[in-house]
């Protein structure tokens, strides 16, 4: 069978490629499709995995930005890894006074235009709620996460790639998602997983007072 062995040797690169492939194929993707209670595609949500097999992965800092366009924070929700820096460019022709009183990052950028000199670093995990002091309706969120595995949900779906297979603790965050209905899933993933979930979202809060109830005064 000697003439058969070189045949096996000739297959060795192919086999090693296959093995490599096999080891490379133990990373998976998680795709989440989200709709709200009315069946609409969910926007402004963050999909993230807190632990895999109970272990937390260390995040690597990144750079992000939250723009102000037409008196709105764009994007409405930005997810970052803790330790990342965020820049707040003001693309509007008027100044904004960006602030937050959140525990994860209390700051204020007094009235400015253009790009502030220094981006801000958020190294504490948590939710930073953004507001503009002169525009009550401006609202934005920066979700600071300790995990590198997250994705911002757009058009009702998000995908996290290069995930090691294992037991995933999947979470979804949405600014209008009530605490009681927050999603905590445990997925035993061996391959690419696609999930479909429905979220119970609260209506948007009115910023201004309603017109005087009961009709006109006189």
């Amino acid at each position: 069978m000697v003439p058969a062995l070189p045949r096996l040797l000739r297959l060795l690169p192919a086999l090693s490629l296959l093995w490599l492939y096999a080891t490379a194929a133990s990373s998976a993707t998680l795709t989440m499709r989200l709709t709200d209670q009315d069946g609409n595609a969910v926007e402004d949500a963050v999909l993230y995995i807190t632990t895999i097999d109970g272990k937390q992965a260390a995040p690597a800092p990144m750079q992000a930005s939250v723009d102000q366009v037409d008196e709105r924070f764009v994007p409405h929700v930005r997810a970052i890894r803790s330790g990342s820096s965020v820049s707040f460019p003001n693309s509007d022709h008027i100044r904004h006074h960006v602030y937050s009183f959140s525990e994860a990052g209390t700051f204020e950028l007094p009235l400015y235009i253009g790009i502030p000199a220094e981006p801000l670093v958020f190294d504490k995990a948590g939710l930073v709620t953004l507001g503009c002091n002169i525009h009550d309706h401006m609202l934005g969120y920066v979700l600071v996460l300790d995990t590198p595995y997250f994705a911002e949900v757009a058009a009702g779906s998000a995908t996290i790639s290069d995930l090691p297979t294992g037991k995933w603790a999947v979470e979804v965050w949405h600014p209008r998602l009530a605490q009681e209905t927050a999603l905590h899933l445990t997925v035993d993933a061996t391959a690419d997983t696609t999930l479909q979930q429905q979220l119970e979202l609260r209506p948007e809060r009115m910023v201004r007072r309603a017109p005087r109830r009961g009709g006109s005064r006189y």
Partner: peptide, 9 residues
């Protein structure tokens, strides 16, 4: 009221 999206007062 807030939960319904109304102004909470």
């Amino acid at each position: 009221l807030d939960r319904q999206g109304e102004y909470p007062e």
